[in-house]
Design a protein around this nucleic acid. Structure first.
Length: 558
RNA sequence: GCGCCCGUAGCUCAAUGGAUAGAGCAGUAGCCUUCUAAGCUAUUGGUUGCAGGUUCAAUUCCUGCCGGGCGCACCA
């Protein structure tokens, strides 16, 4: 509807211009908003206000010119008013609301989808935790965010791929292998001292025990160097297996797991550096190789190859992003923890240096998660290796609640996650509150069916005339909220902000609960029952669609 | 010291540059012969950190302070 009004307004401006009633008006941005208060219409625009200065006329006068152009242009508009300093308020006709309901019931799971991303491929890379330990809660937030974003962009028409980048190269892998190796020796009664930088979590001992079980004392004799590759590989594969399993249970399916090692094996790092060299942004200094990222807005130039000939992580990051673009994606999204925000400038600079517009890469930063229990912080210490894992949280509070909680806040603010609250089955818990609204609707439809209503059939054959009995203000308010859903999906997709759906859902659920409490749907009044069933079905569809974007279930019973 | 993010009700947080800044929780007072009380109603609560600037209009954009988080390696 916004699109329709925008077009009408643009036409009105153009026409006024042709008729000499407006001087300017070329490419006027039309901003439509949904007024907060009753009596201010269903949509409003401020064009007249923004034109006032250039036009040199009072905004209300301009508004009146435009309104005269708009009169009678659309049967969906009931009336147009000029208000306040020069707002133009649109009041939509009842037909519009009835059509909306029929539209929702017809489109079902397609309702809310848009085409802004049609024909565009986007890749979202997220989680990408090092395979040196199980996923912890912050990774869970990244997983929920990335997956919801993927679903959101899919709903906006994009073709989306989810990718996990595996840092399987470098010193940390050696450290991981050594840690397991030392724990393995320890299992045979040897007294070992773990170097400071070792991985100390109990999961390392688990892996060592597995190796002991399957291989016995085979690795006790001989040099450590000879056994290290085995310990590295086994630890890495075991941990990656855990990560994959946890993510799958969390409802996240990656299209591709991309090992860093591939970039080296396929000589893509070399190729990327050769490209940069040809571009003249690669130089040698103090025995190291540098990329002149400062030319593209970075604070300082960055090393890609150290003087000891070792590549830095930045080198593979450069190659990786080049690889992504070469795979034909129109748009890339990286999701990183807040501790990596210092890398944004250099990666964007590298992308620019390779000839791709940095605007095609969005880097989303998510802040940390503070785990609470009844309002008190849950102690987490990474140093001792004792941190709360995603698995523990999932197992304790359930996948739906965990995902919803992670998505309740904008990603760049830190998140308080209260385990007890997330488990609570009450109105205090937003997840249950929203899911309950859905279950409640299912229940109404069940009851109607038991009383002989063929609900699906009624919905199919309903017409606008049948819906005219929906004349209560709260019924119109509900329909209005439903009608806003497609715009919400679109703007949330544009802003990469899935959290907006959680707010929308809570509002819609509140309206539904209130309506339920005040009015009965299934009554002796057959026409009214029929119309209300359509309304309830529409609410149910939207709740389900929005929950699906978040990756949260819509239970039929609770 | 430099850079990025955040400062909104007692708490946790919303608000594409627009009309009187909104929810939830906590607090107080109520509501079950009903299609699910895992629910609903009423009510309290604000100098949007401070000071300037841009704009017809600023929580939103710009500058400077104050406070919090994070990052500033030829680390991963």
């Amino acid at each position: 509807m916004k699109a329709v009004l925008t077009r009408l307004l643009q036409e009105a401006v153009a026409e006024a211009r042709e008729q000499g009633k407006l001087k300017i008006g070329k490419n006027v941005p039309i901003i439509l908003e949904v007024p907060k208060r009753d009596g201010q219409g269903d949509f409003a625009t401020t064009v007249a206000l923004s034109l006032a200065k250039e036009e040199g006329r009072p905004p209300r006068e301009i508004a009146s010119t435009l309104v005269s152009m708009l009169q009678g242009r659309s049967p969906l508009i009931q009336k147009i008013e000029i208000a306040g300093p020069g707002y133009i308020n649109f009041f939509l006709s009842k037909d519009y609301w009835y059509q909306t309901l029929l539209d929702i019931c017809e489109k079902k799971e397609q309702y809310g989808r848009s085409a802004i991303g049609t024909g565009k491929r986007v890749q979202i890379e997220f989680v990408s935790a090092n395979p040196t330990g199980p996923l912890h809660v912050a990774h869970g937030r990244a997983a929920a965010l990335g997956d919801a974003l993927a679903r959101l962009l899919q709903a906006a028409g994009y073709q989306v791929d989810r990718e996990y980048y595996i840092n399987d190269v470098g010193n940390q892998m050696t450290l991981l292998g050594r840690s397991t190796y030392l724990r393995y020796r320890e299992l045979f009664g040897e007294k070992v001292t773990l170097p400071d930088e070792s991985y100390r979590g109990s999961y390392i001992i688990e892996i060592a025990e597995e190796i002991k079980k399957s291989a016995g004392d085979r690795y006790l004799t001989g040099a450590e160097e000879a056994h290290l590759p085995f310990f590295i590989r086994t630890s890495y594969q075991t941990i990656l297996g855990w990560i994959a399993r946890d993510l799958e249970q969390f409802g996240v399916q990656f299209d591709r797991w991309f090992p860093e090692e591939d970039l080296y094996r396929e000589k893509e790092v070399d190729a990327a550096l050769a490209f940069l060299k040809a571009e003249g942004v690669l130089y040698e200094q103090d025995g190291a190789l540098w990329v002149a990222t400062t030319r593209y807005g970075d604070d300082k130039d960055r090393v890609v190859m150290r003087s000891n000939r070792q590549m830095t992580y930045f080198a593979s990051d450069v190659a990786y992003h080049r690889n992504k673009f070469e795979r034909g994606y129109d748009r890339l999204i990286d999701i990183w923890g807040a501790d990596h925000h210092g890398y944004i400038a250099r990666v964007k600079a590298a992308v620019a240096a390779m000839g791709y517009s940095p605007d095609r890469l969005d880097i989303l930063i998510h802040q940390l998660v503070n785990l609470l229990r009844e309002g008190k912080p849950v102690a987490m210490s990474k140093r001792s290796g004792e941190f709360v894992t995603l698995r523990e949280v999932m197992d304790e509070v359930g996948v739906d609640a965990t995902r919803f909680f992670f998505l309740m806040r904008r990603s760049d603010t830190s998140l308080d996650f209260d385990l007890e609250l997330a488990k609570k089955a009450s109105t205090e818990n937003p997840v249950y509150y929203v899911q309950y609204a859905h279950a409640r609707l299912c229940s109404i439809i069940r009851v109607a069916t038991e009383r002989g209503w063929r609900v699906e059939e009624e919905i199919q054959k309903a017409t606008a005339a049948d819906l005219a009995v929906l004349d209560l203000p709260e019924e119109q308010a509900l329909v209005k909220q439903l009608s806003l859903y497609p715009d919400l999906v679109q703007s949330a997709a544009e802003g990469l902000e899935p959290h907006r759906l959680t707010f929308y859902l809570q509002e819609l659920a509140a309206m539904l609960h209130r309506y339920y409490f005040d009015h009965r749907v299934v009554t002796e009044d057959l026409p009214r029952t029929r119309a209300r069933l359509v309304l309830m079905a529409a609410v149910q569809i939207v709740l389900k669609n929005a929950l699906a974007i978040l990756g949260v279930g819509a239970p039929e019973r609770m």
